[in-house]
Design a protein around this nucleic acid. Structure first.
Length: 571
DNA sequence: TACAACATGCGGGTAATCCT
DNA sequence: AGGATTACCCGCATGTTGTA
């Protein structure tokens, strides 16, 4: 075995070991499309990469019953499960999606609100009563890409042509769109291909020269598939809910790397999303049939591949264009901060070093893997920073992701991304200080803080606040230490005492530095034993539940009162 | 036994570098 | 200089395994 240095990833695991939890309510079926495949509306397009409406419902329940309707965002909206599920519960939803297959599915959902049911049925009955072979041929031929060539047998290919000619004669725009979408949704079923992670896998019956004999379970005839699909759509249309989707959903077609920066700060309460994984899957290839049907040629497909969040070995870096974009927006500081936190991510750089070494020694099966991993985290870092800017106080992000392995090296995607996101509570403190005009530095603006958290900050009346790691936050008046805050986000009860133990060291230091110092302990879990220990030690002036601070305005204001009024006497 | 947000590999073309 | 060799990029494909 080769000798590798795993410390940086081990350190990251240690840092977050008490925050990792297993939740048996969220299983494989929930976080994938499986739970959705028989659900009305969701089942129109088999969007394998999606998660289920169950997951979104779980998150909405977990987020708690709020009086007001929430602003929900999905920056990687896909076929729109987050949006559809959220508005059903009375919320407002915004979705960003670049893959045209996804936006087509969401457009179909909009049409579902608008379409005239009777006219849909008339055309459906018309189609059922005539055999497709008897219809005129028309001029349409399926615009194949290189990698879709030979995906259909002759009969199916002809049927598609005739069907497209048939729907061209439908005058009602909404009905026509849904009929067109039905065809898009059955392309895989009627082809020799199946979507298989990174590429299309071909059935042995196709005319392609293949090394292995893969047998697709069932290849449907066009007539059968289209009728089944239209029937499902018709059944679901009868369950539509009076235009709610159209009224309460906003769909943005584009890349969230471009679009998030156009959204207002502190606007969204909840983000539920599933970004692409760092796993080499190339959706421009698995969705090649659909893209061809949508009119994408080779060139357009290539361009689309490069615009998507980097998750394939063929993605080139977007650093330069993102720099140019933020320069144009006059937000270089934000971009620089992202660069900084990116270069500070030691576990990721540990992985990159190992992968680059392997590449130099010829041990990688594809030499673009290090570049892909780097691009992925750089772009995701931008997404996370933008999300933190547009999230309202108390807002949360729920993200489905997975860790990956290359050459046996695990990349802890979840932890790296958590680390990027951890500054939320510090931002909250700064926000409160701004609200109460307690910040002295005139050049430190609210916008600047969202872009870059300062390491320290001068407050009025000779007070000063420092951000660090041990302690997380400290307050001085002139040279005297007056208060420190330790933040422990772990959620498992078993680790509660261990986390407190680590914090006591920092508390003891602060008391040695200044007897008047007040210690605040913020944790996500309090056990009876922990309460007893804190009572005995008398190190902690006051303890708060992090979740309560984030969620309950009264607790938050009590926390601020304790810190700024009682401990610091700043007010 | 079919199915997977799973994991790893290969061939051909071109650019870069080496060698005489 | 220019032919030979190597490195790298790009596009496309197959192999493996746990689970329901």
């Amino acid at each position: 075995m080769e000798k590798v240095n795993l410390t940086k990833r081990d350190e990251l695991y240690d840092k977050y070991s008490d925050k990792l939890i297993l939740n048996s309510a969220l299983n494989r079926a929930t976080v994938s499309f499986q739970n959705n495949k028989n659900e009305p509306f969701y089942r129109w397009l088999k969007f394998k990469e999606g998660f289920s409406s169950n997951l979104v419902n779980h998150v909405l329940r977990h987020f708690g019953n709020r009086e007001k309707s929430l602003q929900v965002l999905d920056p990687f909206a896909g076929s729109g499960t987050t949006l559809t599920t959220s508005i059903r519960k009375g919320h407002h939803a915004t979705g960003i999606e670049l893959l045209p297959v996804g936006t087509a599915a969401m457009r179909a959902r909009l049409m579902a609100d608008l379409v005239d049911l009777q006219r849909f049925e008339i055309h459906f009955n018309g189609l059922k009563s005539t055999s497709l072979d008897k219809l005129p041929k028309g001029t349409y031929s399926f615009p194949h890409l290189r990698i879709t060539e030979g995906a259909f047998n002759g009969e199916t290919e002809a049927a598609i042509s005739k069907y497209v000619a048939f729907i061209d004669s439908i005058h009602d725009e909404n009905v026509r769109y849904l009929f067109w979408f039905a065809c898009l949704a059955i392309l895989e079923d009627i082809s020799y291909t199946s979507k298989d992670g990174q590429y299309l896998r071909w059935d042995y019956r196709s005319s392609r020269p293949l090394k292995s004999k893969y047998s697709k379970s069932k290849i449907y005839s066009f007539q059968q598939a289209i009728q089944d699909k239209l029937q499902i759509i018709l059944n679901d249309l009868r369950k539509r809910d009076a235009g709610k989707f159209t009224e309460n959903v906003r769909i943005i077609e584009g890349s969230c790397l471009d679009e998030l920066s156009t959204l207002p700060s502190e606007h969204f309460d909840l983000v539920v999303t599933s970004p692409p994984y760092c796993n080499r899957y190339d959706y421009t290839r698995t969705y090649a049939l659909e893209l061809a049907f949508l009119g994408y040629d080779e060139e357009k497909v290539k361009k689309l591949r490069q615009r998507l969040l980097s998750s394939t070995v063929e993605n080139k870096t977007k650093k330069d264009q993102l720099y140019a974009k933020y320069a144009q927006l006059n937000r270089q500081v934000f971009y620089d901060r992202i660069l900084e936190s990116f270069s500070d991510q030691k576990a990721m750089h540990e992985v990159l070093e190992i992968l680059n070494l392997a590449r130099r020694e010829g041990r990688l099966n594809n030499n673009n893997i290090p570049g892909m991993v780097e691009n992925y985290f750089f772009e995701m870092n931008i997404v996370i920073h933008e999300l933190s800017r547009i999230l309202s106080p108390g807002g949360r992000v729920y993200m489905v992701n997975d860790n990956v392995q290359y050459m046996g090296e695990e990349v802890p995607v979840d932890l790296i991304l958590s680390d990027f996101a951890e500054e939320r509570i510090k931002t909250l403190l700064l926000e409160w200080l701004f609200d109460n005009n307690l910040i002295k530095e005139p050049e430190l603006t609210r916008e600047a803080v969202y872009q870059q958290l300062p390491k320290s900050c001068d407050l009025v009346k000779d007070f000063r606040m420092y951000f660090g790691s041990e302690p997380d936050v400290s307050f001085y008046h002139k040279d005297e230490l007056l208060a420190v805050i330790e933040i422990k986000g772990g959620t498992d009860a078993a680790g509660a005492l261990e986390r407190y133990g680590a914090a006591t060291k920092s508390f003891q230091h602060s008391l040695e530095a200044s007897k008047r110092c007040r210690n605040f302990y913020l944790a996500a879990v309090f056990t009876p034993e922990l309460e007893r220990r804190m009572n005995d030690d008398r190190l902690v002036e006051k303890a708060f539940d992090i979740i309560d601070i984030l969620d309950e305005p009264e607790v938050r204001s009590e926390f601020f009162t304790e810190v700024f009024h009682h401990a610091l006497r700043l007010l």
